[in-house]
């Protein structure tokens, strides 16, 4: 944590402990930051240690986006040095805008005081900038009964100010694991994108997500393995080039 950012943080947040106030207004499609103030992370000591956040080191993973019909396809190299090196490698940070997604060049500890990013990825873990993961207000909801292609607009009745954020610490900063059965896997709001039958299989569950910039997008994570995702999904055989995550997404109104 740099002194400069500490000062800014003190000026912006109310100092509450575990605070999930998004602070946003939530009008879909706006490009202005919907999160104008940071909310201090309550369990900073724990998240740095538990998730292996790195200081003074920025991920070398590339983020590229291309247009595919009416969607964007964003390929994120979240391989993090491979399976055995991942806990000592930095996360890769991504910002979504109406024009596409781009990498944010920021180190892990600095990300805890930044609204510049929306998603952070390392291997199969995908954090959002909000709740226990970051000082922003990024939230998302899984639409388990919907197919990505069938989502044409923001679902009626969806409260964009109440989208779930990452929540993997108790009020006393005890770690909350997800239900994957993998030891130490945090309870992330986007965690339903994968399952583990013996490899990282994609669920094809789409999400509606609001970014820090107030952009509302639908997204689905289509790929974890650069090669062999279908074999993993169908026969639990691990593919190759793990951590090469492909996100299909588009802005919804």
């Amino acid at each position: 944590m740099t002194i400069l950012s500490a000062i800014l943080l003190l000026a912006a947040c109310n100092g509450d402990s575990k605070n999930d106030d998004s602070g946003g207004s939530g009008d879909g499609g706006a490009d202005a930051l919907v999160c104008s103030e940071q909310v201090a992370i309550a369990c900073e000591d724990q998240i740095i240690s538990d998730l292996g956040l790195q200081d003074d080191e920025i991920s070398e993973g590339d983020v590229t986006t291309e247009v595919d019909g009416g969607d964007f396809l964003t390929l994120i190299d979240a391989s993090a040095g491979g399976y055995s090196a991942s806990t000592t490698s930095p996360w890769v940070y991504v910002r979504f805008t109406a024009e596409g997604a781009e990498k944010v060049e920021i180190d892990d500890e600095a990300s805890l005081e930044s609204l510049d990013w929306d998603l952070a990825l390392r291997r199969y873990l995908v954090r959002m900038n909000g709740g226990d993961s970051g000082p922003g207000c990024v939230g998302a909801v899984a639409l388990r009964e919907e197919a990505y292609a069938d989502i044409a607009s923001i679902p009626e009745g969806l409260d964009l100010d109440a989208l779930p954020m990452d929540d993997f610490y108790t009020d006393s900063c005890e770690f909350i694991a997800d239900s994957s059965g993998l030891e130490g896997s945090p309870n992330l709001a986007l965690g339903q994108w994968w399952s583990y039958p013996g490899c990282v299989a994609t669920s094809d569950i789409p999400f509606i997500m609001r970014t820090n910039g107030g952009v509302i997008i639908k997204l689905v994570i289509e790929q974890y393995y650069g090669q062999g995702q279908e074999e993993c999904n169908s026969s639990a055989t691990p593919g190759d080039d793990s951590g090469m995550i492909r996100v299909r997404w588009s802005v919804v109104e």
Binding site: D50, L51, G52, T87, E183, G184, S185
Partner: peptide, 19 residues
């Protein structure tokens, strides 16, 4: 030795970290 700045009892999150 790859991570001596990690607390001895603070195992990182992850399926298998080796810590």
């Amino acid at each position: 030795l790859s991570e001596p700045d990690r607390g001895l009892d603070l195992t990182p999150a992850g399926a298998f970290t080796g810590w």
